[in-house]
Design a protein around this nucleic acid. Structure first.
Lengths: 143, 143
DNA sequence: GGGAAAGTGGGTGAAAGTGGGGAATACACC
DNA sequence: GGTGTATTCCCCACTTTCACCCACTTTCCC
């Protein structure tokens, strides 16, 4: 269960410390890939494999499915944490998500996302504006 | 069953004592999330997981649904109680709910809410003002 | 009134987050 | 083939934060 919002810094070498709460659930490795809306996604290896299988089984005929595969697989890399619990984010992924020094790591229950601080601010601000829509969706779930 | 209204204080370290009546029902852990109207919500872990699964099953394709998940899960936190029955409220949640020293914890049967004392006052006053409207809604429900 | 439990405050050692040095490897270039 | 640069993966070290423990005061209940 990945929960919470963490503001960490990307050092000069491009390393990012994974929140300690996440490390246990990740075990040895983590798969980082491109996500939607110019963020990166991180998965435990086991979950990634399930997801990868599902995507691979989508019909080749659908354009959306093809693009989904391009997004997910071409950017994916299986990374190990160093003794300090950090991973080296590949440069192409850093560029994709526009990561600079300040980075936000956000838990999303089954996986987590990595954002540049500025973009993350925008996401949160955009949500405030749509607060009522969220309330409605939650009500539909019986909360 | 979470019932009652408790006024507790948030200490300098951001810790909040959970009312002892609630502790048994929470067991070891509690999940605190952003709630509506700038309060925080607290759930027993088991109940939270039911909600989390429902939300996680929303379609990934919709931008709104993605953003809703980001708001909910990034604003959630799985916390353990210390031996004194307290939890450390993460700073981003403290800010969201505007918590200062005086805090109100209100039972809502299935979960509980955490308010800054000032805001809680406003809520109660609002109830006075809108009492009749609320009564009408209850009547509509056959209560 | 006495005892237990709840709420509050604070100290301390461990762990998290951060920065950087240096060896090993890969790569391009001369 | 040799050299120089860049990258990556190890360490180690520092600062800050947090989790844990202990102690005090107040409240509640018998």
């Amino acid at each position: 269960m990945f929960l919470g919002e963490y503001e960490h810094s990307l050092d000069e070498k491009g390393r990012l410390a994974i929140p300690s709460r996440f490390r246990e659930e990740l075990g040895e490795g983590v798969v980082i890939t491109r996500g939607f809306d110019r963020c990166l996604m991180g998965f435990p290896v086991a979950r990634w494999q399930v997801l990868a299988d599902q995507i691979s089984n989508l019909p080749l005929g659908q354009g959306d499915a093809r693009n989904m595969r391009r997004l997910l697989f071409s950017g994916a890399s299986d990374l190990a944490l160093d003794r300090q619990g950090r991973v080296l984010i590949p440069q192409n992924l850093r560029e994709y998500a526009g990561l600079s020094e300040q980075v936000v790591i956000a838990g999303l229950n089954t996986h987590f996302e990595i954002w540049s601080s500025e973009r993350w601010e925008d996401v949160l601000n955009g949500l405030d504006a749509n607060g009522s829509a969220i309330a409605e969706q939650l009500t539909a779930l019986g909360i």
